[in-house]
Simulated scan of single mutants.
Amino acid sequence: MRRQYRAAGLDESALAAEPMEQFDRWFAAAATSGLDEPNAMVVSTADAEGRPSARTVLLKGFDRRGFVFFSNHGSRKGAELEVNPQVALLFPWHPLARQVIVQGRAERIGRDETAAYFRSRPHGSQLGAWASEQSRPIGTREELERRYAELAARYPEGADVPPPPFWGGYRVAPSSVEFWQGRENRLHDRLRYEAAPGGGWQVRRLQP
């Protein structure tokens, strides 16, 4: 089960000077290509013993400082980030024969920034953040739906729902960003920005 990639290549001369600028170019291409949820990314974390876990999360913003996503701080990923802030992100844009792989360090964003994003969410998503103790066991689906119904009665549509204190954003400041372009005969292009010790970025070509 394999597909021959016949996309145009990725050359060093075409790269932006900064990885976030290059990501902006590729993300714009993904967003206008018809892909479902081009902001979906796999977030990989590890606990204090180095045992990994991964899940798909939606990217909610990016700039020169890094990549932002939101989560329950008590979730598995939240607990793992508390003891080991090293994280990997993967954007799998398969129809474009492209991937972006990020390694970096995650830190919580400020509460003001979290509150501003929380207020922009749909009402149902705001209630869902309160209803779910993410990653913790629950007896039945009905228990979860009962919590949601109680919250919906307390905060009807149009009411001001406060952001949960146990919920917020993380920003991943990248130490490396790899741009992977599928090529014919598995001779893929892999160009990776790596943070230079004195500041700035250096680009390495990796063998496929």
Rank of each mutant, 00 (worst) to 15 (best):
L10V: 09
R6V: 14
P92M: 14
L81F: 08
S53A: 12
M41I: 09
E150H: 01
V203T: 06
E21K: 10
F67R: 04
S71K: 01
E157S: 09
A29C: 11
L89C: 11
A14Y: 03
W93L: 08
E82R: 08
I109H: 07
L191F: 12
A88P: 06
N72G: 08
A79R: 15
Q4P: 00
L10W: 09
P137I: 09
T32C: 08
L144F: 15
N72L: 11
L187Y: 01
E80L: 04
G128I: 05
V100Q: 13
W130I: 06
L96D: 14
Q134L: 06
L144G: 10
Q99G: 05
L10D: 04
L81G: 03
P137L: 04
E150L: 07
L144K: 03
P197A: 12
A131H: 10
E80M: 03
A54N: 08
R154W: 03
E12S: 13
R2V: 13
E145H: 10
L81K: 08
S132E: 06
G168E: 06
A88Q: 14
R65I: 00
A79I: 07
R183Q: 14
R141G: 00
P174E: 10
R171L: 07
Y117C: 12
R98L: 14
G110C: 13
M20H: 14
D160R: 07
I138K: 01
